[in-house]
Design a protein around this nucleic acid. Structure first.
Lengths: 168, 168
DNA sequence: ATTTGATAATTTAAGTCTAAACTATCTGTT
DNA sequence: AACAGATAGTTTAGACTTAAATTATCAAAT
């Protein structure tokens, strides 16, 4: 049985050397999928939690005053309809609560409940430990290079979207 | 309205400087989501195609003799059940075909139809053009650093999985 | 030949995700 | 005040995704 690394090498070997963008992209995707899978397994096995729910809790943990549904949607880079569903399930389980905003009757502010914050803190410890483990081999120089690359990519895409008149 | 880049800066600013693994991971995820979104929009608008279907076609294009369902599952790093569904829809649309293998009656070899290959080639051109555009600002040195980082991460995860006795 | 365990693929149930349509509300502008 | 356009959030229909259970087949060892 071929290992994921062997499969990956087979995927890359037929791609012409000069297709740098493609090669880099395939590496990024493979890396992201593998790390995400580790996180998913950890969250499921230790906390019976899914990654999307964890990410919503994480967003709320970073902003103690809470976020509206639309802010959550932009923060997590998913559609508003998607947030509706995830927030509904987290609310049923008592991890978050929704409060109407005084200034805008269309809008809600979502915050963590004490139960939600307690759970998140436990998960956060394991989550950060896992990431440290995954990136343990990476040098400071590589970190900096990596960070620079990702920042450039984000800027290029922002510009692309502006040119096309698409909202971010 | 805050732009994605502004939202991202807000996400990062509250994270302690010393949490390198977490910071790097959030950057990788944000970058991947943005590039994927560009690809999704392009595929939908120009070809009425989804990303998962495109990726399955891409895998088959790289291996002219075809791949079994299980090989596709490992190649694309998704479950076999997932492949069943995507392959079903691509087959209905006449882009791929499934043939029984002579040596193993449980197994099928999936290959592109001429129609599927023709469509893929058209999409591939646009896809690679988009990736070149997205990564245009990245220097050769950064490419190398990036590639090295991703390779290390993959190895670390392989080792983690072996220690835990989990299959890849 | 039969049993036993492994493997290839599908099915199932539940959750995630999207784009588009929709409802309710807000914010000008007249 | 009344209208028009924009915005916050939900709903809908369909596709994707997963883990776990299931079916059919294989392969190896009796």
């Amino acid at each position: 049985m071929a290992s994921p690394l062997q499969i990956f090498e087979r995927k890359m070997e037929n791609i012409p050397r000069d297709k740098d963008g493609l090669r880099l992209w395939l590496r990024i995707v493979a890396c992201t999928q593998m790390v995400e899978q580790e996180i998913r397994v950890m969250l499921r096995e230790k906390f019976s939690m899914t990654l999307p729910r964890f990410e919503l809790l994480a967003a709320l943990d970073r902003v103690p005053d809470g976020l509206t549904m639309g802010e959550l949607s932009r923060w997590l880079m998913v559609t508003k309809g998607n947030i509706t569903g995830i927030a509904e399930r987290l609310s049923e389980d008592g991890f978050i609560k929704r409060q109407p905003t005084p200034t805008d009757r269309r809008s809600f502010v979502v915050t963590l409940t004490p139960k939600g914050r307690k759970l998140f803190k436990e998960m956060e410890t394991q989550y950060e430990r896992l990431l440290d483990e995954v990136f343990v081999e990476i040098s400071i120089d590589d970190f900096d290079s990596f960070t620079g690359v990702l920042a450039k990519v984000k800027e290029v895409i922002e510009n692309l979207r502006e040119q096309q008149g698409r909202a971010g």
